[in-house]
């Protein structure tokens, strides 16, 4: 495109017209873009800008975590022990696998194999479902022992070698669990949004809306899904392990 505008030869504008004429046949190209290429790049830059706002949203909560952990290290160490690192680890592997499947979905749509891409998208949604089910069991096992966020915090009982009652002796244990529930809760909300998003593009992939020439929606949904994975990569060691 740059060469089109810089060359003064009469042939150059004519060439551009032909290019534009060709692009007009593409149903997906919107009139305010010069080419599919430009439309794709603009959409992608926009997605990255959105993802950065998401990162900043989560960074506020990571700051809350850092401050309270620095103030009350022994409380955070004790409260973190009550979280099940095996379930957290399982969910880490599940999310990493889902990131792998959506990356492969993009790989195959780029090669023009739409049905392979479709099934990998379905696989991603299934793995996201597994993540939420595990999260459900984690939450309910906490609620059963009065471990709620905020003012309802009333820990009691012993289960699987975890003494929830002992949490009551830590003045700042409620803060740890408020941070835990808010961070994993908002992350879980993003998982649900991701499932809806990928469900929508999977149905469009199935109906043949995408090809190796046009797959912007899959690419952008993939980026969003990787961000969900990215947040969990930090949440897992910080909440469950350290």
């Amino acid at each position: 495109m740059a060469t089109d505008t810089t060359t003064d030869t009469p042939a150059a504008p004519a060439q551009t017209e032909v290019d534009l004429h060709d692009e007009e046949h593409l149903s997906h190209l919107q009139h305010h873009f010069v080419s599919s290429e430009q439309q794709f790049d603009s959409a992608k830059l926009g997605m990255w800008l959105f993802l950065i706002t998401e990162v900043l949203l989560f960074s506020g909560m990571f700051v809350a975590y850092a401050v309270f952990r620095q103030w009350h290290p022994e409380t955070f160490a004790a409260a973190s022990q009550t979280l099940d690192w095996q379930l957290g680890g399982l969910n880490t592997v599940v999310l990493l696998a889902s990131s792998f499947t959506i990356a492969l979905a993009i790989h195959f749509i780029q090669k023009g194999e739409a049905m392979k891409s479709f099934w990998l998208q379905v696989g991603t949604i299934a793995l996201a479902g597994v993540f939420l089910v595990v999260k459900y069991f984690e939450y309910t096992s906490k609620f059963e022992h009065g471990v709620f966020p905020g003012a309802m915090f009333d820990p009691h009982g012993v289960a699987h070698g975890v003494d929830y009652g002992a949490l009551a002796s830590y003045a700042y244990a409620p803060q740890f669990f408020s941070i835990y529930f808010v961070m994993t809760g908002i992350h879980g909300f993003h998982v649900v949004v991701g499932m809806i998003l990928i469900g929508w593009i999977a149905s469009r992939t199935y109906r043949g809306h995408f090809s190796s020439e046009y797959y912007t929606h899959i690419e952008l949904s993939g980026l969003y899904w990787h961000l969900v994975d990215l947040v969990w990569i930090f949440l897992f060691p910080l909440l469950y392990l350290v």
């Binding site: 990356a103 980026l223 990787h226 994975d229 930090f234």
Partner: peptide, 9 residues
């Protein structure tokens, strides 16, 4: 995170 950003993303 770097691996995810550089290769998956």
């Amino acid at each position: 995170a770097s691996l995810v950003v550089l290769y998956f993303m």
